[in-house]
């Protein structure tokens, strides 16, 4: 069993040996006021790679992925996304954001717009696509997240799981090269977690570069190339899934794993 899983990890590694860098973070530090929230982060994400970031709350994992599309600014170090360096230049930031999709813990759909309008808004206003084209693509992605029949409803009429799938479709409509997920299932009822994870697995299988902050260890095992464990603002340990779960090196990781896997 374990041998097979390890083999699977190795296969996965071979598949992404493209060597093309999607995100490169070097020597990055961030403070909230006096609080040193991210400490000397060095991380390279290759195209097609899927990384799950875990760690106790307050460890800086959400802040880390929010730095990648500049929802949070970093103070020192360098972040390069698809060859564009994140600087204070608004033009660069907007370009990176239109290449990087993001899903939030609380979905953050636009409640005053219908599901299909949520999905077509950015393509129409940012990419300047014709309405017809944007709608066709929105319908395609809504079908893909299995929610095509709800296109004309408003977010307030949908369940949490449905809303999160719409949020994923909304991001995909911008045809991003990278997808960031900030605890996408933490606000969902147990029955709805699976429907969202299914969509994410499907997305993973299509070769999308994904960075997922999550505590869904089953999902991590199933799709991740790498698992990163963060604590107190720094990357404590990272490894391939089977090695990470079966043979954690740091005491902190062992403690964390024993706590989340004990139920």
């Amino acid at each position: 069993m374990t041998a097979a899983a390890t083999e699977r990890d190795e296969e996965r590694r071979a598949m992404t040996a493209s060597g093309e860098v999607a995100i490169d973070i070097a020597g990055m530090n961030k403070w909230f006021g006096e609080f040193h929230v991210l400490r000397d982060i060095n991380l390279t994400v290759y195209r097609g790679e899927r990384i799950v970031v875990c760690g106790p709350s307050g460890s800086g994992k959400s802040t880390l992925i929010r730095c990648i599309n500049a929802l949070e600014g970093h103070q020192t170090g360098r972040i390069t996304v698809e060859g564009t360096e994140l600087s204070s230049d608004i033009k660069n930031i907007d370009r990176i954001r239109s290449e990087v999709g993001m899903c939030f813990q609380h979905f953050n759909l636009f409640p005053h717009l219908s599901v299909i309008e949520n999905c077509t808004l950015a393509p129409i206003w940012v990419r300047r696509e014709p309405k017809k084209e944007a709608e066709d693509r929105a319908r395609y992605f809504l079908e893909r997240v299995k929610i095509g029949d709800q296109a004309l409803k408003y977010p307030g009429q949908l369940s949490g799981g449905q809303q999160q799938r719409v949020a994923i479709a909304r991001s995909l409509c911008m045809q991003p090269r990278i997808m960031l997920f900030d605890e996408p299932t933490s606000a969902l009822d147990p029955e709805m977690i699976k429907e969202v994870l299914d969509v994410m697995v499907d997305l993973a299988e299509s070769g999308m570069t994904m960075l997922v902050v999550s505590h869904e260890m089953g999902f991590a095992r199933q799709v991740a190339h790498r698992i990163i464990f963060m604590d107190e603002g720094q990357i404590v340990e990272q490894n391939e899934p089977e090695a990470f779960f079966n043979n954690p090196q740091s005491e902190r990781t062992k403690l964390f794993l024993s706590q989340i896997l004990s139920h």
Partner: peptide, 20 residues
């Protein structure tokens, strides 16, 4: 979250204000 969602989709300031 509404500001962040608008930002993360690449809408610039005026568009996110006007549309969202």
């Amino acid at each position: 979250g509404q500001y962040e969602a608008a930002d993360s989709l690449g809408l610039d300031y005026w568009k996110s204000m006007r549309l969202i």
